[in-house]
């Protein structure tokens, strides 16, 4: 196992990020599911930089020959997965917000209708 400055740097960054994620999850600023995704990603970076042979094993498993290309593919894949997650969350919150606006509008309308009915009777 050959430790280089870059591998130490990458593993340190990964460690800092893992601690940060744990902190955010504990403070409930990050959900368990998202936390898990980020933990997996940074753990992968840490393990991959300290033990490059694990990367070689995965690379052979994916039938690729170039390590850089393999890393690039994984990075793009992770980015797309995160983007998809982000877009679906955004859509869900948009829908929830729309439902809320509709409910408020209907509630206000119901109140006005009740007042109108009351006004007619009195």
């Amino acid at each position: 196992m050959k430790i280089t400055t870059a591998s130490i740097l990458f593993s340190l960054v990964a460690l800092v990020q893992l601690v940060r994620i744990a902190h955010l999850v504990r403070q409930e600023r990050l959900g368990i599911r998202s936390g898990l995704v980020w933990v997996l990603m940074w753990a992968g970076v840490g393990v991959g930089s300290l033990f490059p042979f694990t990367m070689d094993f995965l690379m052979r498993f994916a039938m690729m020959e170039n390590r850089m290309f393999f890393i690039l593919i994984i990075a793009v894949f992770v980015l797309f997965a995160l983007l998809f997650d982000l877009v679906s969350r955004l859509e869900k919150s948009e829908r929830n917000m729309a439902k809320l606006v509709q409910e408020i509008a209907l509630l206000r309308f119901r109140l006005e209708e009740t007042e109108r009915e009351g006004g007619k009777r009195s």
């Binding site: 729309a98 606006v101 509709q102 408020i104 509008a105 209907l106 206000r108 309308f109 006005e112 209708e113």
Partner: peptide, 10 residues
């Protein structure tokens, strides 16, 4: 008319 108001554009 009777008016139902959305507080934002949907």
């Amino acid at each position: 008319a009777r008016v139902i108001r959305h507080s934002m554009n949907l």
